[in-house]
């Protein structure tokens, strides 16, 4: 009884104009409307239509890709919280570190989550890549997604590097000094690239601001887009690469 009336109420809700304008369909009563529900929903659509049992086993992937994605989400959330306390300015940047440590409730926890999360993400992404490589995941039809993955690796590394300057302490300053000096050894383009990155000839307020914008806007946006393509292509290229796929090919 109750189930029926609940079903009826839900169907009524799904027939309203508001519901339809949002979800582009009415009540899912037929197979067609059910599949439309999946196609019409971004989040459901990203997921594959069918998932093979083998690909869900721990040993199949060790969930390394998911783990990297989860860390990306964690870093986004903690990063946004940190942005509430941080000014990309000299000398305020370092004083904000002090405030996070001494005044903000759980500020140390927040910073540590972001910091160790970032380190874990670099490890996870590398591990993910090795794993995919040794499983032969770069072979057709996955070759494009492999390239996207390499792009994501570079973005992860660059995010990690740009984030390193932001505390504006001695470690940050000298690490970036060394890093940008390495860039300047690139033939011909080295010096202009270094200049572009630092916004000047030495590490100062401009460099801090550029690294900040790269760290919180440009690189995360690029990462989000590439992650979306990456996940979408997993599905389009026939799901995860499982061991047996290649054994069968042999």
């Amino acid at each position: 009884m109750i189930m029926n009336s609940a079903q009826r109420a839900l169907d009524q809700l799904r027939s309203t104009r508001v519901w339809k304008s949002i979800f582009r369909r009415g009540p899912a009563r037929t197979n067609r409307t059910r599949s439309l529900a999946v196609f019409g929903n971004l989040f459901l659509h990203v997921l594959p239509v069918k998932v093979r049992d083998k690909s869900l086993r721990v040993r199949a992937t060790y969930y390394l890709g998911s783990f990297s994605f989860f860390l990306f989400l964690l870093l986004s959330v903690t990063g946004i919280l940190l942005m509430l306390y941080y000014h990309p300015a000299v000398p305020q940047a370092y004083r904000d570190m002090k405030d996070l440590r001494f005044v903000v409730s759980n500020g140390v926890f927040l910073r540590n989550l972001h910091r160790f999360g970032a380190e874990a993400m670099v490890i996870a992404v590398f591990w993910h890549m090795f794993h995919v490589f040794y499983r032969g995941g770069y072979k057709p039809p996955h070759q494009f997604n492999w390239v996207v993955g390499v792009g994501l690796l570079l973005i992860t590394l660059f995010l990690s590097y740009t984030g390193y300057l932001l505390p504006w302490d001695q470690l940050a300053f000298w690490a970036i000094t060394v890093g940008t000096n390495i860039i300047s050894y690139v033939p011909l383009l080295g010096q202009p690239m270094r200049f572009l990155l630092l916004g000047g000839h030495q590490i100062g307020e401009n460099a801090l601001l550029r690294f900040y914008v790269l760290h919180v806007v440009i690189l995360p946006l690029a990462a989000v887009m590439l992650i979306a393509i990456h996940l979408w292509r997993v599905q389009k290229d026939g799901g995860l690469t499982v061991k047996e796929d290649h054994e069968r090919e042999k």
Binding site: R95, M97, K98, D99, R101, F102, V103, D169
Partner: peptide, 17 residues
């Protein structure tokens, strides 16, 4: 010293940071 600190050692002494 370190006026921003709220811990005895950090406020008074030379520390890592």
């Amino acid at each position: 010293g370190q006026g921003l600190a709220t811990e005895v050692k950090e406020a008074h002494q030379t520390t890592l940071a």
